[in-house]
């Protein structure tokens, strides 16, 4: 296969999601290669804790952006590294404001929040936003290879859910400040203390970040989510559910990539499998009618480097319609 002249009509932010093992990482990398080949400065981002992007592409990629070839960069987000950076910033700021003794006293609590269930997602999410903000300057397109579905859906709906929560906190803080001001009419020390409110400022800044992320994610001109599935029963059901959920959250969903399709040359031994596959393909075509459906063949070996990705990447030219 050679590269085609067809240009991909890409969005700045493209997400590849789907059930575990369906081929998200391979598809994201093949797609990113297609964009790079047509001259778009492209960044591939992996959020998958297993970090198979490096394996798929066949080069070292780390938790910092590295250049892989002309027009192509890669990064594997490490939530632990990101959370550490975040905490370090907070701790430095804290030492400027409060005594070391107090910092010491609340160390254990910090540890609790730092390892709370949402922490990992939040750390990945912050890095997402940081990378998205670098669009235009360094990159024309960012392609996200996401973790298996459930994880990713939580991640993408984070700004909406937490945005509501933080709005509530801002209201509460305003109310408290209002009461403080009333009390402060007779209390100059208190009045001075509430002259400026870094707490309100911090909450507002965080809310604005969520708002920005939400605006980007729900703008179909800027963001799109493609699903990778295989012609099997469970991935079809999971895809249908995930599409519905993303739609409810206002996130644009694009095409479906049906990966690992057994080709006719698989031979008579696979005939039965191919019959079953044909049935599932029919199901996919009718169930998701109106959507772009891309069929990607199963290669004769696992994808272990750029050479194999390049074979697949021209097929992705059609994905964005």
């Amino acid at each position: 296969m050679t590269s085609t002249d067809r240009k991909v009509n890409y969005r700045p932010f493209t997400f590849f999601g789907g059930k575990g093992g369906t081929g998200k990482t391979s598809c994201a990398a093949a797609y990113a290669l297609a964009l790079a080949a047509q001259g778009a400065r492209t960044l591939m981002v992996s959020t998958d804790p297993a970090h198979s992007l490096a394996d798929a592409y066949g080069a070292e990629i780390g938790f910092e952006v590295v250049k892989l070839e002309e027009n192509l960069w890669g990064i594997e987000i490490d939530p632990e590294v990101e959370a550490k950076k975040y905490m370090k910033g907070i701790q430095e700021k804290m030492l400027h404001i409060v005594s070391a003794a107090i910092v010491d006293e609340i160390k254990r609590q910090i540890e609790i929040a730092y390892t709370s269930p949402g922490a990992e997602e939040a750390a990945i999410f912050d890095k997402f936003i940081e990378l998205m903000e670098s669009l235009g300057e360094r990159f024309d397109a960012i392609v996200f290879d996401t973790a298996p579905t459930g994880h990713t859906l939580r991640l993408l709906t984070l700004p909406e859910i937490l945005g509501t929560w933080i709005e509530h906190l801002i209201e509460k803080r305003k109310k408290a400040m209002h009461m403080m001001k009333m009390a402060a009419r007779y209390d100059s020390v208190l009045a001075e203390k509430i002259e400026e409110d870094p707490i309100l400022d911090t909450l507002t800044a965080r809310r604005d970040k969520f708002d920005l992320a939400r605006k980007i994610l729900t703008d179909p001109e800027r963001s799109v989510f493609h699903f990778v599935l295989n012609a099997e029963k469970l991935p079809i059901l999971e895809t249908a559910r995930a599409l519905e959920l993303l739609r409810n959250h206002g996130i644009a969903t694009g095409g479906l990539v049906v990966n690992k399709i057994l080709p006719p040359e698989a031979g008579p031994f696979f005939e039965k499998r191919r019959e079953a596959q044909e049935e599932y393909l029919q199901d996919i075509r009718s169930r998701f009618a109106g959507r772009k459906i891309l069929e990607i063949p199963l290669l004769d070996s696992d994808i272990q480097g750029r050479e194999q990705l390049i074979r697949l990447s021209p097929l992705f030219a059609d994905l964005d319609g």
């Binding site: 959370a83 907070i90 409060v98 609790i112 730092y114 949402g118 939040a122 933080i166 909450l203 965080r206």
Partner: peptide
Amino acid sequence: PNPISYYMLELLPYMAE
């Protein structure tokens, strides 16, 4: 449980006391 506790850490410098 707090759904947002990771982000609340950034308020600590002002609330630690």
